[in-house]
Simulated scan of single mutants.
Amino acid sequence: MLEAFIFATILCGFFGIILKKNLVMKIISMDVMSTGVIAYYVLVASKEGYFTPIVGKVENPAYADPVPQAVILTAIVIGFSIQAVMLVGVMKLARDNPTLETNEIEKNNTP
């Protein structure tokens, strides 16, 4: 059931990127889609009964692998930086165009 909600989130973001005409809405849709992908990765990587890899007094523990956690943190940071760069690009476009609709921007910039 949780996988279905995660796939629905990914599909909502994907269709938002394709169907929305406003550039800010496209950026938000991309963020929703990346959040769904990260949630799916966390769902696949999570296993019940594993301990965090911290030195303790537990005998023969089953430690969780810290590499997927590092990959997810890196993906979150990279996604945030890409989103910030895209928003700066949209701000630059907004200076020259009265609207952020893709159709109008293409009409105004076509020679």
Rank of each mutant, 00 (worst) to 15 (best):
M1H: 06
F5W: 01
F7K: 02
T9F: 00
F15R: 04
F15I: 02
G16F: 08
G16A: 07
I18H: 10
I18S: 06
K20W: 05
N22M: 14
M25S: 14
M25Q: 14
K26A: 13
K26G: 12
I28A: 15
S29W: 09
S29E: 07
M30N: 15
M30W: 11
D31P: 01
S34V: 11
S34I: 04
S34Q: 09
T35P: 10
G36K: 00
I38K: 01
I38P: 10
A39Q: 03
Y40N: 00
V44M: 05
S46H: 08
E48H: 14
P53I: 09
I54M: 05
N60C: 07
P61D: 05
P66W: 03
P66V: 01
P66N: 01
P66E: 00
P68N: 05
V71A: 08
V71D: 03
T74H: 08
I78T: 04
I78W: 01
F80W: 10
I82M: 14
Q83Y: 15
V85E: 05
M86Y: 12
L87S: 03
G89K: 03
V90T: 07
M91V: 07
A94L: 08
A94S: 07
R95E: 08
R95P: 04
T99F: 15
L100R: 09
E101V: 06
T102A: 13
T102K: 11
N103K: 08
N108E: 12
